[in-house]
Amino acid sequence: MKYPEIDKYAELDSLIHRFDPRAKIITFTLLIFSFVFIEDIRIAFVSLLFSFFILLVSRIPFGFIFNRMKPGLIFVMPFLIVMPFALDGNVLYSYNGISISYDGLYYGSLVVIRAATSIMLTLIMLGTTKMDTTMKSLHSLKVPSPFVQTLMFSYRYIFVFIDEFLSMWTSMKAKGFKVKANKHSLSIIGNIVGMILVRSYERAERVYHSMASKGYTGESRTIVKFKMQTADYGLAAILIGTVLIFIIYGMSLS
């Protein structure tokens, strides 16, 4: 199993990496939101190319991003398959009463392109900043503290969780366990899942105790030091300008 290490390439150096993390979060969020509302498939396609261009600039290996895009794309793929059959409209092709509609194909593709664009941008945003910096930026952008803390602890403990699962799994295999499609195998798997839940609950309790014994009262206090540079304002302006061009061009078409 691979660790979900989203910030594996955060130590590279590029224009996107150097971008102030708070400005990055704001502008990328703007980009994503304006791109998912694009109605015209040609503009949507250009926005996908634009995101790809940002990926090039960020110098993160394509394979890394594409691998992580897969789960999301698999999730939206059914739209592309179902919509051409389900939606009425101009018939593109028809066979034995089953027809594929042009509108269905259009909207199906639009959904997939929008999803690809927004997932890619999200991954670039997260992939070019170290996770703790992202969390601190969210904190300094006044995102509610319970939300940021939940994110932070989830990210911290998912690794512990995976290690725990792997070590249990290895020790089961070392004792001759093989997954088979029978009742015994299933009941054992059920057992580990239960075990993991109990362990996580107990760990959460111990972590909380450890925090409490260091004076935690629910408030998150971290030292945040960010400073916007001229280059950051410049890049933010360019990206926001791009958003505006997309929006204005989109409006002029409709």
Partner: peptide, 28 residues
């Protein structure tokens, strides 16, 4: 009084070593 327990993963809950060590002093 400060207590250090045996299992370090339970006691390092922040995202970086710096933040973990700063945690107590900040709360003070």
């Amino acid at each position: 009084v400060g207590v250090v327990f045996a299992e370090p993963d339970d006691q390092l809950f922040m995202s970086t070593v710096y933040d973990d060590i700063a945690f107590g002093p900040l709360n003070m």
